[in-house]
Every structure is written in C-alpha cells, then in structure tokens.
C-alpha cells in the first residue's frame, strides 16, 4: 500500500514539476515574443484578430455579392448563429491547430543560447500551444462577450461537450505538431509544401466559412475527411444544439485525436534523441 502511495506521490511531484517547467517556458516564450512587437504581449491577440476579421469580411462580402447586394448576413447559418459567433467558433478551433502546426514545422527551439536539461522538445511544443490557446481563448471570449452584450442572446447549450471538443482538438493539434516536427526535419521542401497545404487546404475544408449542412450531400465527402471540420462543427453544435450537423461524428474526432496523439507520442519516444540533436545544434 505504501508503495502505491509513494508511486502516486512521485507521479504527482513529477507531473507538477513538468507542468511548472512548461508554464515557465510558456512565460519565457511570451516574454520573448512581447519584446519583438510594438504592442507587446497583445501582439498574440491582435494578429489572429486581424485574420479573423478578414475572414468574417470575406464571408459577409461573398454573401453580399451572391445575394445581389441585398443581404449582409451570413446566409442559412443566421438561423442559428450571429455571423461573428459562427466564425469565431470556427476560428477558436482551427487557429490553434494551424499555429501549432506551423510553429512545429519551423522547429522546436527556444531561440535562446541557454540550455536546460529538463526542457525537451515536447515541453516547448506544449508551451507554445498553451500560449496560443490562451490568446485564442481570450479573443473568442471577448468577441462572444461583445456579441452577447450587443444582441443579448446568451447561449451555450452543451458546455461539457464544448470542453471535450476543445481538449480533443488540442490533443490532435499537439499530435499533428509532433508528427510535423519529424517530417519537417527531413526536407525543407516538404516543410514548405506542408505549410502551403496547411494554409490552403485545411482552411477551406475545416468549415471556417461554411456549415456542413449548407453543402449539397454529394460534396460533403470532399470535406468530411478533415477531423478539424468535425471539431469546428461539433463546437458550434455545443453552442446551439439546434444547429444541424449531418455527417459529423464525435467518435471520428475522438479516434482521430487519440490515434494521432498516440502515434505521435510513440514516434517522439522512439526518436527523441534525433530530435534533440536537431534542436540543440
């Protein structure tokens, strides 16, 4: 019994030490980034906000043009969401995924000459993801709060589901990021190619601009392969349970997240040394 208790204590101590390390790296990285921008730490908020507003503009503009200049709203999705909430929900899920993937492709370095034995590439990846998630959460919450205050419509039908979707997406993003770290290490051309693919294909298939139910049935298989789309749509569904989600599955998202996370951790564990060399040199 004592052994089990001791083992548990050791586990808790190790975990808390690791968490402290990751949080410290996150704080360090945040400090470093804030010094490179004129707006300081707010840079990580302003940059995604610009992109988000640009995307909202695109969506509203297309809708305006397609309706012959009579409709500024978001189309059928207006039945369920304000256009800003609709886009922000998609952005909250998609953007950390994209940021983490691109940062992972750029290499997991602290960009510091200092060396600390306990810091592993995985810690850096986790720290980066924490910074991204914090900024995106702040941004989304701010936008939602603003829209809620303006329209006075408070709706969060399944907060538990929203949390689960968010965590699954974070797991998937970390798994994807770890895989990309290894992939990017081999060839610079592949790195560039993947960056372009992520920026273009993923953005157009992850449901940022559209809802799955708006698509004709025969076109859905072209986008439903993307687990990020499932995450985005399920996240919207968790905000409003009346939002229709045809061909979207929580189990598909769960399996994709777990398989990607498991595979990446195995990959990481078996090839950690090569990654360390690549990072530290």
């Amino acid at each position: 019994m004592n052994e089990v208790v001791n083992l548990f204590k050791r586990f808790v101590t190790a975990m808390s030490r690791q968490i402290s390390t990751i949080l410290a790296i996150a704080a360090y990285e945040n400090d470093r980034r804030s010094t490179t921008s004129s707006v300081g730490a707010w840079e990580s908020l302003i940059s995604p906000l610009q992109i988000m507003l640009f995307f909202i503009g695109i969506r509203v503009g297309f809708r305006f043009l397609m309706s012959g200049g009579s409709n500024l709203a978001g189309g059928t999705t207006d039945l369920y969401f304000n256009i800003v909430i609709f886009m922000a929900a998609g952005f909250t899920i998609y953007f950390p995924f994209r940021q983490l993937a691109i940062q992972a492709l750029s290499g997991l370095k602290l960009r510091s000459p200092l060396y600390y034995r306990r810091i592993e590439p995985l810690d850096i990846l986790l720290a980066l993801s924490i910074n991204n998630i914090r900024a995106l959460l702040t941004l989304t919450l701010g936008l939602m709060g603003l829209i809620w205050a303006l329209t006075w419509e408070f709706r969060m039908d399944s907060p538990g589901l929203a949390l689960c979707i968010y965590l699954l997406t974070v797991f998937m993003a970390i798994g994807f990021g770890i895989c990309l770290v290894f992939l990017g290490k081999y060839n610079k051309f592949i790195t560039r190619l993947i960056k372009r693919i992520i920026n273009r294909i993923l953005i157009f298939t992850s449901g940022l601009f559209f809802a799955t139910f708006e698509l004709p049935e025969y076109t859905r298989p072209f986008v439903t392969w993307n687990p990020v789309l499932h995450a985005v749509e399920l996240f919207r569904y968790s905000l409003n349970n009346e939002y229709p989600i045809p061909d979207i599955s929580l189990s598909y998202l769960t399996w994709c997240s777990l398989i990607l996370m498991g595979f990446s951790l195995i990959l990481y564990r078996t090839n950690e040394s090569s990654l360390l060399e690549a990072v530290d040199d």
Binding site: A27, N30, D31, S34, G40, A41, W42, S44, L45, I133, R134, A135, L137, T138, L141, M156, P159, G160, L161, A162, L163, C164, Y166
Partner: peptide, 25 residues
C-alpha cells in the same frame, strides 16, 4: 460538471493571458 472544469480552463487561459499582458505593458 464539465462546465465547471471549462470555467477553470477558460479562467486560467484568459485570466493568465490578460494578467501577463497587462504586466508586460
């Protein structure tokens, strides 16, 4: 229950970010 966990996560994320950013600025 998960909403309570979500409140903690969001509070930690948003609160941490804002406090940190305010401290820096």
């Amino acid at each position: 229950f998960l909403a309570s966990v979500g409140i903690i996560v969001v509070g930690w994320g948003v609160g941490g970010f804002i406090l940190n950013a305010m401290r820096k600025s």
